[in-house]
């Protein structure tokens, strides 16, 4: 009992059995998720999978139709001051007041956050090469993302939430964003939640990931464990069989004739006997990238 309370305390975000519908469409379906303190958590999923909806629940912009959401142990809808004051958020659309100048945006945002670090803000402004007198509407897409990142980071939030931070951006801006993530986690106890389509980036920086599909969590866990638990196996069926093999732990399979390439989940000693049990010979066995795991899970 004590350990579960301690576990909850160490969780920055605790989403329990949340369901959310938009009309007849179920956006989140009995979804549960916990994000521990001090990690980089990657939320991955296809378009319309429910990533942004989940993030908006965490920010208190959506009210769950069923289930509960707690951030820092508080309900974000009931206590926006306690929750949002500790979050830095960069939205998918980089929503910022277009008419403001960058300097005005910094000054305006500073007024809301007592923990705003003016020196850090100046440092980020210089690093991102932002002119404080330029209006937000005149910024390029990449500069706009940098400006959004600046105001999300400068109050040194306990939780940094980035919704598709690098989509449509050039490699230089993406490097800035990844650098910001790394800097944030370098500060002890800070947490990053980010959603992305760019799985190589997620693979590079995330400690934990969750794959979300049709409003449900398909897979969640530590990156290393997930990669260890997934393998690509090429098997050759005995005899003249042209049918794909079926065995416990197999997620997907493609090929023709006697040779088939299968994606397996679980440890090798769990699936190897079952492969051999169906009369197949293992020709090749290799590790998988996150991209491949994602496709296998979503299509499977």
């Amino acid at each position: 009992m004590i350990s579960s309370i301690e576990a909850n305390r160490s969780c920055v975000v605790d989403v329990a059995s949340v369901t959310r519908k938009f009309g007849d469409k179920i956006a989140l379906d009995n979804l549960s998720l916990s994000i521990p303190r001090g990690i980089v958590f990657g939320l991955i999923g296809g378009n319309g999978a429910g990533k942004t909806t989940l993030i908006k629940h965490i920010l208190g912009m959506y009210r769950a139709h069923a289930g509960t959401v707690h951030v820092f142990g508080r309900d974000p809808v009931a206590d926006p001051v306690g929750v949002l004051g500790r979050i830095g958020y960069l939205s998918e659309d980089r929503d910022l007041p277009n008419w403001m100048r960058v300097g005005e945006l910094m000054g305006y945002t500073e007024a809301f956050f007592p923990s705003w670090d003016r020196r850090f803000a100046e440092e980020l402004c210089q690093q991102f090469e932002l002119d404080k007198r330029t209006r937000v509407r005149h910024l390029s897409r990449g500069q706009r993302a940098r400006a959004g990142l600046l105001v999300a980071l400068a109050h040194r939030p306990d939780l940094l939430v980035l919704d598709e931070p690098s989509s449509g951006l050039d490699p230089v801006v993406r490097r800035d964003i990844l650098g910001a993530i790394i800097r944030t986690i370098a500060d002890e106890g800070r947490t990053v939640l980010f959603s992305s389509h760019l799985l190589d980036e997620v693979e590079r920086v995330a400690d934990q990931i969750a794959i979300i599909h049709h409003g449900r969590i398909l897979l969640a866990g530590f990156m290393d464990e997930i990669k260890q638990q997934h393998s690509r196996v090429t098997v050759r069926m005995s005899g003249n069989s042209n049918t794909p093999p079926t065995f416990a732990g197999m997620l997907a399979c493609e090929g023709s004739g006697p040779d088939w390439t299968c994606v397996c989940s679980g440890q090798e000693d769990q699936w190897r006997p079952t492969v051999e049990g169906v009369g197949a010979e293992i020709i090749e066995h290799s590790a998988m990238t996150l991209d491949e795991i994602f496709v296998a899970r979503v299509r499977g």
Binding site: L59, M61, P80, L84, G85, Y89, S91, D95, L96
Partner: peptide, 11 residues
Amino acid sequence: GNYLATRPKTS
């Protein structure tokens, strides 16, 4: 918009 909605102040 997202920016104004996430200001850490009560409604």
